[in-house]
Each structure stands twice: as C-alpha cells, then as structure tokens.
Amino acid sequence: MKIIINHSSMQPIYEQITDQIKAMIIDGTLKEEEMLPSVRTLAKELKISALTVKKAYDFLEEEGFVVTVHGKGSFIAKNNQGLLMEERKREIETELEEVIRKARISGLSEEEIRELFELIMEE
C-alpha cells in the first residue's frame, strides 16, 4: 500500500494516513474485505510510531471504513455505498467552499459567483 507522509504539512500524520486510505477505498484501489497492513508493518514502512498508525486505523473504524478483528487484523469494511457517497459529498463541499472563498477574496460578488457556477453547470 502506497502512503506518502508529508512531515512538513500542518495536517497530523494520522489524518494523512486516514485520508489516503479513504481515497484508496473510494477509488477502488482497496477492495472490500481486503486486509490492511498490520499496525507495526505500516509504522515500520512509514518510519513513524505504531501509535500513530493505530490512531488512524481506529478513526477509520469509527467512520465505518475499516473493521478490525482482534488477532487477525484490520480489513476494508463491506462496501457501504451510502457511506462512500457521503464522503464524496463532503470532499466536494470542502472544495466548493475553497473556490467560493477564493472568488470572494478576488472581489467577485455573490451574483457573479452564482453566474459563473450556472455557466459551468450548463457545459
């Protein structure tokens, strides 16, 4: 599994791991019921603390992306299309908020932003 850690990022390492694993689940790189590397293996591979990887796996489990079977490991949860769609919507919402923020900083009015959005939607 290819995970890239940016040590100069302001985003915590466990969140970087979580986000990248979610992205791999959403795009189909990781399939349902596929086993994730053990906490120790991934920690060694990424040269980070096992506690950081454990925190990422726990967070993924809380969100329903991963299921952990004690003594066996962590696995990608059976595909929950609603959960995946909600995650995609959240990502799009975040990106749209960023675009709107940039438009406002650039001095565009609410009406100009709406017009641009509608123009793009027509294409």
Rank of each mutant, 00 (worst) to 15 (best):
L42T: 04
L42P: 03
L42H: 02
L42S: 05
L42D: 01
L42V: 06
A43Y: 02
A43M: 11
A43D: 10
A43H: 05
A43S: 14
A43Q: 07
K44T: 13
K44H: 12
K44S: 14
K44M: 10
E45Y: 07
E45G: 00
E45K: 11
L46R: 05
L46G: 07
L46H: 03
L46A: 06
L46F: 07
K47W: 06
K47H: 14
K47T: 14
K47F: 12
I48G: 04
I48M: 01
I48L: 02
I48S: 05
S49F: 00
S49L: 07
S49I: 00
S49E: 11
A50F: 10
A50V: 04
A50L: 01
A50M: 07
A50I: 07
A50E: 15
L51G: 08
L51K: 10
L51P: 00
T52R: 08
T52V: 15
V53S: 07
V53G: 02
V53D: 01
V53M: 04
V53T: 08
V53R: 01
K54D: 10
K54T: 06
K54N: 10
K54W: 04
K55Q: 14
K55A: 11
K55H: 13
K55E: 13
K55Y: 12
K55M: 13
A56N: 04
Y57E: 12
Y57S: 09
Y57M: 12
Y57K: 08
Y57H: 11
Y57R: 06
Y57D: 10
Y57V: 09
D58Y: 02
D58C: 03
D58M: 05
D58N: 14
F59H: 09
F59M: 09
F59R: 11
L60N: 01
E61S: 10
E61V: 00
E61P: 05
E61N: 05
E61D: 07
E62T: 11
E62I: 09
E62Y: 12
E62H: 09
E62Q: 13
E63D: 13
E63T: 07
G64A: 04
G64D: 00
G64Q: 00
G64K: 07
F65W: 12
F65D: 06
F65S: 03
V66T: 04
V66D: 02
V67C: 06
T68D: 08
T68A: 12
T68C: 13
T68W: 00
V69K: 12
V69W: 03
V69G: 03
V69L: 15
V69T: 12
H70P: 08
H70Y: 14
H70R: 15
H70Q: 13
H70V: 13
G71D: 11
G71A: 09
G71Y: 08
K72R: 15
K72C: 08
